[in-house]
Design a protein around this nucleic acid. Structure first.
Lengths: 301, 301
DNA sequence: TCACCTCTGAAAGATATTTTCGGTTCGGTG
DNA sequence: CACCGAACCGAAAATATCTTTCAGAGGTGA
């Protein structure tokens, strides 16, 4: 794990709300109360001391400090500074637009607007929360891999296929697996120099963890793309790429935003690899484009 | 307890530099040193404790506190918070300068920022360009369909599968086809009251047009999701949903933004249908969620 | 039910901030 | 030139704030 002790305030302040959401599931109840208070009213919390915030949230100082730590700050003092920064930004910044959930009786135009807005938000959060060091390491591994396996199930399976399709287009050898048995069967064929990527939002999908583990134990370089950086899947991951989590509503399943987030990460991987292997990637891209050209138009009539 | 801190941080932070200038004459030499340090590098000073700043300026803690008081803050702590806010504002001021294409030698952080930005752009364009009338009609057709077929090839095939997965989760009967022959075979089974959806960015993919045409001729309600509203596929489409097209660059194939755009449209369709069939959709969603729960290892809180 | 484990807050311990207080400097004055 | 007073300054005490420790509460699975 690359530890960037350089950065003073624990990362771009804009990402705090996103961080709270991603980490909320791994928090205890009291910590969640603190995190929520902090996320919902940064300015107000910045004005409070540990003791004050502890009282406000009905918890103890210890819990407040623990929460600050979990959010990536050395202690409450630094969290407080970050909050002050965030508050200042918010005040000077723009007014947040549509924040309400999608309702059953929303007209279709509102649905479009809200969905677009939320997905944009998801993208911003993901970009802010992505560890570029980990990303860079993953790209390096991919660019030099003999072969690459990608594991994903359900909605994540589609993302896995998307990545595979892209990698194939620039001349890499990649396979996506959504059948758990076949995935494991393939995983044990991997060895040092190969890459295995597991995509799972929850980080706890056994069917995806198993093949990654097999690959990990075989010495392959393993990457996890997950919304839960502390989940089981990361045990077997050399590099962890975190996707963002937005709150799930009845009409908008979590799968929707996690998919958006995962795809952005996958795109970043792809472009990164394409950069690294530009000499071979550019001709490959052109070639695959050519090969498909006649499929359009010509037999359309 | 009582939240009195309305105007918390001693006035508008932007005025700090000005205040330093105004008050400088009435300051003693040591205090001027502190004030100057603070004004010239707010971010740096925000990272220092009272002792640190005293050392940096070659003065004492007492002097630092006196300076903070003179500047209008209750003590150093509050000055520090104001500095953090100021620093954040400054930083956010010089952010939005990413309009250029992704270059081969862009650092990975830029790649992330640019990709996120472009996808956000794509979403906004798509939402703006979507014909809600057509969308509404498509939703109505879907909600009342006996069965639904979705055709898509390549990257669009994944979008087709995504839509299918979602519809299945709310109890509808839907199939995705990426094999052209099977697609046609299935299409001829459709009849009035059924729905066929073709997803193709170019609108000219023969392998997708053929099944849509078959369905169209059988009397099914047909929908085209395409980036080219004047393309061949729309001949056989009762409803056309237009996705946005952003310019393609060497490292960023068109497939990337078209996919983002298509997915937004698909999400809108899904939510629209879920609204219409809320009575049955809500329980179905809950049921599929339940059914999957045990597949995740129980580390969840 | 019981053993075990995690979560939690009270209080002790460590830091940071504020205040106090005495020494120093400097300009004026006898 | 010696003395005085006032402002200035910083060391260290006093206070406030933050962090850590530890033992009990509460929940979980066998």
């Amino acid at each position: 794990m690359t530890k960037d002790a350089k950065e003073s305030f624990g990362g771009p302040v804009g990402s705090l709300a996103a961080k709270v959401r991603t980490l909320a599931p791994s928090m205890t109840r009291s910590m969640q109360r603190v995190a929520e208070a902090v996320a919902s009213d940064p300015a107000g919390c910045a004005a409070l001391t540990v003791t004050g915030l502890a009282e406000l949230t009905g918890t103890s100082e210890a819990t407040v400090v623990r929460t600050a730590r979990l959010l990536g700050y050395p202690g409450y003092r630094d969290l407080r500074l970050a909050l002050a920064g965030l508050a200042a930004q918010q005040q000077s910044g723009r007014a947040p637009a549509i924040t309400t959930d999608i309702a059953v009786d929303d007209p279709i135009a509102d649905v479009v607007a809200k969905l677009a807005y939320e997905e944009q938000q998801t993208l911003a959060d993901t970009a802010a929360g992505l560890d570029t060091g980990q990303l860079d390491a993953a790209v390096t591994a991919l660019a030099g891999a003999r072969r690459t396996d990608v594991y994903g199930i359900g909605a994540s399976g589609l993302v896995a296929q998307d990545l595979t399709q892209k990698l194939l287009r620039i001349g890499l050898i990649a396979h996506a697996h959504s059948d758990p048995h076949l995935a494991v069967t393939n995983a044990v064929q991997l060895r040092s120099g190969d890459v295995a990527i597991a995509i799972t939002h929850s980080g706890s999908t056994g069917d995806v963890i198993e093949p990654l583990r097999a690959a990990f134990e075989r010495g392959a370089t393993t990457v996890a793309i997950t919304g839960r950086p502390d989940s089981p899947v990361t045990q077997y991951a050399d590099h962890v790429l975190t996707t963002s989590t937005s709150r799930e509503t009845e009409l908008r399943p979590a799968a929707m935003s996690s998919r958006t987030s995962q795809l952005l990460v996958v795109d970043c991987l792809f472009v990164g690899v394409a950069q690294r292997t530009y000499e071979t990637a550019a001709p490959s891209l052109a070639a695959s484009y050519e090969a498909l050209a006649h499929r359009h138009r010509s037999n359309s009539r």
